[in-house]
Nucleic acid binder design. Structure first.
Lengths: 193, 193
DNA sequence: AAGCTAGCGGAGGGTTCCCTCCGGATGCAA
DNA sequence: TTGCATCCGGAGGGAACCCTCCGCTAGCTT
C-alpha cells in the first residue's frame, strides 16, 4: 500500500520534486484543519495561508475545491482502512466493536466533507469500497460466530454508526454509551418472541 | 398555542399587517426549501426570490442569516413537539417508537440548520427543552413499563436517533431497517449473561 | 558548477453575495 | 373616502472569494 502505482487515480498526480511534495502535504493538512474548523465552505485562500504557500500553489495541486475535498477525504479513509489490519486476531465481536470505535472517531470530523461528496462522486464510491473491504469481513466473521444478527448487512451498520457520530456529543462518555446502545442492537435477538 | 403571547421571545416580532404577515410566512417557507436544497450557505437573495419578495423585506424581518435559521428551526421543532400529543393513548413502546419515527423525519432535513446552530445559540437550547418536554414522558412511561432499558436517558436516545438520521439513506426501507436495529438496542437485555 | 525546468507566489479581474437606504405603494382606522 | 403609518422593492456600495497568469526561485541532473 506504500508503493505508488497501486493506488487508484485518485491522487491524480503526486508532485515529484521535494519542495512540491512538502507543499502538497502541508496543503492537505491545512485543508483538513480548515474544513474541520469552518466547515466545507472554508476559504481556499485561508487554506493556502495556513499551509504557508501561495494561492497559486494550491490551485496547481488541486484545480478545484472538490479536488481538495477528495484528496483530504481519501487520505482519511486510507488511514481508517489501514487500521483494520491487526484486528483479525481478536475475537469476532471484539474485533468488530474495536473497528467500529475507530470508525466513529474517523467520521466525527468528516461531517462537512461527507456532505459535499455525498451528492455525486466516484471517489466517494471507491472509498466506500475500501471501507467495505476493511470492515465487512469483520462483520461476517461475527455473524458466522453467531454474535451478530443475520438479518442486516454491513451497509446497515455503516449507516447506523456513521450517522450516530454525526451528532456532536458533549462528552466521550455519552458517545460511548450511545454507541453501546447501538451495538446492542446488532446482537442477535436472545429471546425470539 | 394559537394565541400570540404565550410563545417565548423567539419569534422576536411577528409582523402585524396582513401583507407583512404573508411575506413573513412566505420567507420561512422559502428559506426551508432553500436550506434543504443548497445547505446552510444558500444565498439569502435566492431565498427572497423564492418567496417572491424583495431582499429588503427579508432583511427587515430577519436582520441576519442566523435569525432566519432560527426562525425556520423553531417552526420545525414546534411542529414536531405538537405531534407528540395524540400518542399517549398508544401502548408505551409503540408510542415511543411512533414519536421517534416522526423525529427521524424531522431531523432528516435539518442537518444543515443544526450544524449552524449547534455552536452557540440559546434558541437551540430552548428548542431542546421543548423536545424533551414532548418526548421524555414517552420514554419514562416505556421504561416504567419495562420495555426500555433503564441505564440510559432520553438525551442518549435523542443523540442516537438524530445522529442516525443525519446519514442519508438510499431507500426508506433501509432507513427503517437501521432505525429498527437502533430501537432494538433500547430494549432491556432479555438474557443477562 | 552550471543550466534547465518544475514549481512558486501573489497581484488582479471577475463574480457573487451581503446589507443599507429611501422613494413609492398599500393596508387599516376613523 | 381619506390620511397616515407601515411595509415594500431593488439599486448600489462594499467585502469576500474564486481562479488565472506570468515573472521569478530553487531543486535536480550532468
Amino acid at each position: 500500500m506504500a508503493s505508488a502505482g497501486q493506488a487508484p487515480e485518485v491522487f491524480a498526480q503526486r508532485p515529484k520534486r521535494a519542495d512540491a511534495r512538502r507543499n502538497y502535504d502541508a496543503l492537505i493538512t491545512a485543508a483538513r484543519e480548515a474544513f474541520a474548523e469552518n466547515g466545507a465552505a472554508a476559504s481556499l485562500e485561508d487554506v493556502a495561508r495556513r499551509a504557508g504557500v501561495g494561492i497559486g500553489t494550491l490551485y496547481r495541486n488541486f484545480p478545484s475545491r472538490r479536488h481538495l475535498f477528495e484528496a483530504v477525504y481519501v487520505e482519511e479513509v486510507r488511514e481508517l482502512c489501514h487500521s483494520a489490519e491487526g484486528l483479525a486476531e481478536l475475537p469476532p465481536w471484539d474485533a468488530l466493536v474495536a473497528w467500529l470505535h475507530r470508525f466513529v472517531a474517523y467520521v466525527a470530523t468528516k461531517r462537512a466533507l461527507a456532505e459535499q461528496l455525498l451528492h455525486d462522486s466516484e471517489i466517494f464510491a471507491s472509498c466506500r469500497t475500501e471501507i467495505f473491504a476493511a470492515g465487512e469481513p469483520l462483520m461476517r466473521r461475527a455473524q458466522a460466530a453467531g454474535v451478530v444478527r443475520n438479518d442486516i448487512g454491513f451497509d446497515d451498520v455503516v449507516r447506523l454508526i456513521s450517522g450516530l457520530t454525526m451528532a456532536q456529543f458533549p462528552s466521550p462518555e455519552q458517545r460511548d454509551r450511545v454507541l453501546g446502545v447501538a451495538l446492542d442492537g446488532l446482537r442477535p435477538p436472545a429471546t425470539p418472541h
